[in-house]
Write a protein that binds this DNA or RNA. Structure first.
Length: 228
DNA sequence: TAGGCCATCTGGTCCT
DNA sequence: AGGACCAGATGGCCTA
C-alpha cells in the first residue's frame, strides 16, 4: 500500500467532485483581477480602490491624512473586514470539501480491498467500515488458528487441516477473489458469505455478518466492541 | 411519500 | 493567525 496515496489532494476526481484550485496566498489584492466573477461577489474593485488609497495616504503629512480620512475610515475597514471574512469562509469551505473528498477516497480504497460481489451495489460508508471491521476480525481469527495449528502438525497435516477449516477456507476465498472467480467452481464467490452455518467464526457466530445487509446484527459478541 | 444516504456549508474548537 | 477537525443543519437524490 502507498500510505500517501490517499493524502494527495489532487487525484480525487473519482468521486465526481469538482475541484476549485485555491490560490496559495489569500492576498485579496489579487482578487480584482480574478477571471471568475463569482469569487468576488462583494464588488471587490470598489473596496480595493479604497484600500489602495489608504496605502498611499501615509506618505502625506500626518495632519492632512487624519483630517481627510477620518470620516470614511470606519466604513471602509468594515467593508474590507467583511470581505476578508467571506474570503476566509470560501477558502475554508474549499478545504473542507477537499478534506471530505480525501476521506471518501480513503473509503473507496477500503472498499476496493474488501471482498464483494462484482455486481454488488456500492457499500455505504457505514457498511464499508463495519464490513472492514468484521473482515479484519475474521482474518485475525484465522491467522491465530493457523498459528496454533502449525505448531503441532506436519506440513501435510497442516495443509489438510487448513483446507478443512471453514474459516480458513473462507479467508482464502476472501483474499483471493481473482483465483476464485477464475476457478472451475462457479460457487466460489458464494463461499464468501456462505460458510455461516459451518463455523462459529464471526463474533456473532454468523459469518453473514460480513454481509452488508446483515451488518446491524453483529453486536452481540462480548469480544466484539459494540461501538460500531 | 417517508426514510436513508450523501455532499456541502457553517461555526466552533483545538493545534501548530 | 491559519489550518485541521468536528458536528449540526440543510437540501438533493434515490428507493421501497
Amino acid at each position: 500500500m502507498s500510505p500517501k496515496s490517499d493524502c494527495s489532494p489532487v487525484q480525487l476526481s473519482s468521486e465526481g467532485g469538482q475541484y476549485y484550485p485555491i490560490p496559495d496566498d489569500e492576498d485579496t489584492s489579487s482578487l480584482p483581477s480574478s477571471p471568475n466573477p463569482s469569487v468576488s461577489p462583494l464588488g471587490l474593485e470598489d473596496c480595493f480602490s479604497e484600500e489602495q488609497s489608504s496605502y498611499a495616504d501615509p506618505r502625506e503629512p500626518p495632519q492632512k491624512k487624519q483630517k481627510a480620512r477620518k470620516g470614511r475610515t470606519k466604513a471602509k475597514s468594515e467593508a474590507v473586514v467583511s470581505k476578508q471574512k467571506k474570503n476566509r469562509r470560501v477558502k475554508a469551505n474549499d478545504r473542507e470539501r477537499n478534506r471530505m473528498h480525501n476521506l471518501n477516497s480513503a473509503l473507496d480504497a477500503l472498499r476496493s480491498v474488501l471482498p464483494t460481489f462484482p455486481d454488488d451495489a456500492k457499500l455505504t460508508k457505514i457498511e464499508t467500515l463495519r464490513f472492514a471491521h468484521n473482515y479484519i476480525w475474521a482474518l485475525t481469527e484465522t491467522l491465530q488458528m493457523a498459528d496454533q495449528t502449525l505448531l503441532g502438525l506436519g506440513p501435510q497435516e497442516v495443509r489438510e487441516t487448513f483446507q478443512r477449516s471453514p474459516s480458513a477456507r473462507l479467508v482464502m476465498d476472501l483474499t483471493s477473489p481473482v483465483s476464485s472467480a477464475s476457478s472451475s467452481s462457479p460457487c466460489e464467490w458464494d463461499s464468501l458469505y456462505s460458510p455461516v452455518s459451518q463455523a462459529s467464526l464471526s463474533p456473532t457466530s454468523c459469518m453473514e455478518d460480513l454481509l452488508p445487509s446483515s451488518i446491524p446484527c453483529f453486536s452481540h459478541s462480548p469480544s466484539f466492541p459494540e461501538y460500531i
